[in-house]
Amino acid sequence: MLRAAQSLQIPVYITTQNRAKLGLTVPELQPHLSGPHIRADVDKTLFSMITPEIESKLPSNLDVIIVGIETHICVTQTTLDLLARGHRVYILVDGVSSMNPEERGIALARLRDAGAVVTSSESVLFEILGDAGHESFRDVSGLVKETKEETKSALGVFSKI
């Protein structure tokens, strides 16, 4: 999703839970965490990523795509905060996890009931494109093909709601 966000120039807001104690974002993601589409990179102790700094940078009425860890904690609290502020929220089943797998399904069902759209990365990417004539279609479809096996594996593990 981060690579697609670069190609599609989708604004990205990054938060890390207490870097001093829990460390930096996963090293494999670091090369994709810079560029003009990165709107914020915030260290936080709140479980929701909607910190005062992030909230001040968010336009109103956004469609928001959520990826992250601890679906039942940070993803849930962020999603509920965004929904309460009137945003449409898409949670990617192949982009969220929990240390306890059973927590994921409970959280995703709760968030779907609260009004979030629970979907997959490939589905949301092609929804953004909307048309094979989109200027980023080749980049995104190439990325989807390149990561097909990783996505299939992630969906096999994570799509059980």
Score class of each variant (00 low, 15 high):
Asn100Thr: 13
Ile65Trp: 07
Thr25Cys: 14
Thr15Ala: 01
Leu29Ala: 15
Pro31Glu: 08
Glu150Val: 10
Asp41Gly: 10
Leu108Phe: 13
Arg138Trp: 04
Lys145Val: 12
Gly133Pro: 01
His87Val: 02
Gly95Asn: 11
Gln6His: 15
Leu155Pro: 09
Ile73Gly: 00
Leu125Lys: 06
Glu127Trp: 07
His87Ile: 04
Val96Pro: 11
Pro101Lys: 00
Ile54Phe: 10
Ser121Cys: 13
Glu146Tyr: 10
Leu82Ile: 06
Leu33Trp: 07
Glu70Asn: 06
Lys44Gly: 00
Val144Gly: 05
Gln6Asp: 15
Thr71Lys: 04
Leu83Glu: 11
Lys21Asp: 10
Glu150Ser: 14
Lys145Glu: 12
Val89Phe: 02
Val89His: 01
Gln6Ser: 14
Val26Thr: 13
Leu111Tyr: 00
Ala109Cys: 09
Ser48Asn: 11
Asp113Asn: 07
Lys57Cys: 04
Val26Leu: 15
Arg85Asn: 04
Val96Cys: 08
Phe137Lys: 04
Gly142Lys: 09
Pro59His: 07
Cys74Ile: 02
Arg110Trp: 00
Gln77Leu: 02
Ala4Trp: 05
Val42His: 03
Glu149Asp: 03
Val124Gln: 09
Ala154Ile: 11
Val67Leu: 05
Ala107Lys: 04
Val12Gln: 01
His72Gln: 02
Gly130Leu: 00
His134Asn: 05
Leu80Lys: 01
Ala40Gln: 02
Glu146Arg: 11
Glu28Pro: 05
Arg3Tyr: 11
Val93Arg: 15
Asp81Leu: 06
Val96Gly: 09
Gln77Cys: 02
Ser120Pro: 10
Glu122Val: 12
Val42Ser: 03
Gly35Lys: 08
Arg88Val: 00
Lys145Ser: 11
Ser153Asp: 11
Leu62Val: 08
Asp43Tyr: 14
Leu83His: 06
Leu46Arg: 12
Leu83Val: 09
Ile73Trp: 00
Ile14Lys: 06
Ser60Ile: 12
Val144Phe: 01
Val75Ser: 06
Leu62His: 06
Gln9Pro: 11
Lys145His: 13
Leu82Ser: 03
Ile65Arg: 13
Gly130Pro: 01
Asp139Leu: 13
Lys160Asn: 12
Ser123Arg: 08
Leu143Trp: 06
Asn61Tyr: 10
Glu150Met: 06
Leu83Arg: 08
Leu29Ile: 07
Leu62Ser: 10
Glu53Ile: 04
Gly133Leu: 01
Thr76Ala: 05
Arg85Met: 08
Leu46Glu: 14
Glu70Ile: 07
Lys152Val: 09
Ser159Gly: 13
Leu108Val: 12
Val117Ile: 13
Thr78Ser: 07
Asn61Ile: 05
Ser159Tyr: 06
Ile161Glu: 09
Gly95Thr: 07
Thr119Tyr: 02
Thr151Glu: 09
Val117Glu: 12
Tyr13Ala: 11
Arg110Lys: 09
Thr119Phe: 05
Ser141His: 01
Glu103His: 15
Glu28Arg: 12
Gly23Pro: 02
Glu146Met: 08
Glu70Met: 11
Leu92Arg: 04
Arg110Pro: 00
Val96Leu: 07
Thr51Tyr: 03
Glu102Gln: 12
Ser153His: 14
Ala5Ser: 03
Pro27Val: 02
Ser120Tyr: 14
Leu82Met: 04
Leu82Phe: 07
Gly156Glu: 11
Thr25Lys: 05
Asp81Gly: 05
Asn61Asp: 14
Phe158Tyr: 15
Glu70Lys: 09
His37Gly: 02
Ile65Ser: 13
